[in-house]
Design a protein around this nucleic acid. Sequence first.
DNA 1: TCTATTGGGGAACGATCGTTTCCAAATTAA
DNA 2: TTAATTTGGAAACGATCGTTCCCCAATAGA
Lengths: 202, 202
Amino acid sequence: MDINTATRPPGRPREFEIEEALDKAIVVFSERGYHAASISELKDAMGLAAGSLYKAFKDKRAIFLASFDRYKQVRNALLEQELAEGENGRDKVSRMLRFYAEASHGASGRRGCLVVGTAIELAVYDAEAAERVDRSMARTEAMIDGLIREGQADGSIAPAIDPVTTAHVLLSVTQGLRVLGKTGPNRDRAFSVVDTAMKLLD
Amino acid sequence: MDINTATRPPGRPREFEIEEALDKAIVVFSERGYHAASISELKDAMGLAAGSLYKAFKDKRAIFLASFDRYKQVRNALLEQELAEGENGRDKVSRMLRFYAEASHGASGRRGCLVVGTAIELAVYDAEAAERVDRSMARTEAMIDGLIREGQADGSIAPAIDPVTTAHVLLSVTQGLRVLGKTGPNRDRAFSVVDTAMKLLD
DNA sequence: TCTATTGGGGAACGATCGTTTCCAAATTAA
DNA sequence: TTAATTTGGAAACGATCGTTCCCCAATAGA
């Protein structure tokens, strides 16, 4: 008897990890976009037969939404880890922007951001996708806003700065970086954007 | 005999204006993206039969690239018109950013930018599309750079500002606005981004 | 051991995709 | 007039799409 887990449900157990499969799907969806990513490509990348895919997920859209959620979970965890090392509010804002700059060049830049891709390709016609994009953007913006206030409290950011409008701009900068990263500017360029944008906190 | 035009080519004359048809295609491609826009949707929007479409354009990709070029031509003309009314370099930068903010909210915001859409959906796998995106971005950035230098020459922008890196950031802001505009923030928000970003010129 | 249930995988399905073909109509050149 | 050429438009084509079906394997519970 297995003490640590709940009793196994009836039927044949799944032979693959959902999250591992989603990590493969994220790559396909990010590079190709939702519509250009075919089930054939997805099943090859995920190492599954079509039948198995459709037993784990209702349809292609469900695979995508699950990939989106997994993507957000992983990226948020990495970001929080990065922010935890920040010394003060200003440093944390800088780390956050650099986190996006890091993702916006080279191979990961070309692969692209699943949130941006969803906003561009899906949000207009898919209310559920739009809501996920909105939640993601709102969360990021609120995070920047909070870090600015933290910086004002610890003296690392000028008190005259308006946290709300400044967070708007910095969110725009991060999303813009992701767009520009699709055609692959070099690393230095992405980081010079961060350095210059940080002037908004002076 | 028609004095004003070159002699008409042999064969039945085309009954529609290519540019008018492209203006309709631009709407479809902007809203739906390249892959989700079907020939069926395009021909309905453009008011043409499939056969006629394929006599005017080699294939779907050619329709898209022609739409992209037409989009750039129209938008560039509108932007130059707007900039011509600017009083000095700073005012022109502000007008440029407001031009993007105006496009990034409401119905046109939801419709989206064809350049951003191409960058996200096509640039990675289509070298010709990527080149067009790059040229567009480079042109916009060079324009901002030039306006900053103009402002420094006429005294409306601080001489300590680095035109190159500042143009990088402001380009990122414009592209970011276009992404955020897909899920439709309100007008005031888009313009508050512009106002705050203008602080980078102080 | 028997039944119920679920997953794996490949074959098959109908729908839709982008594209081509075909024929009538409209034009120029001879 | 006639031939050559091009467009308009509808119908048809093969390919691929997302999805379902079916059969076998693997597990739980009785």
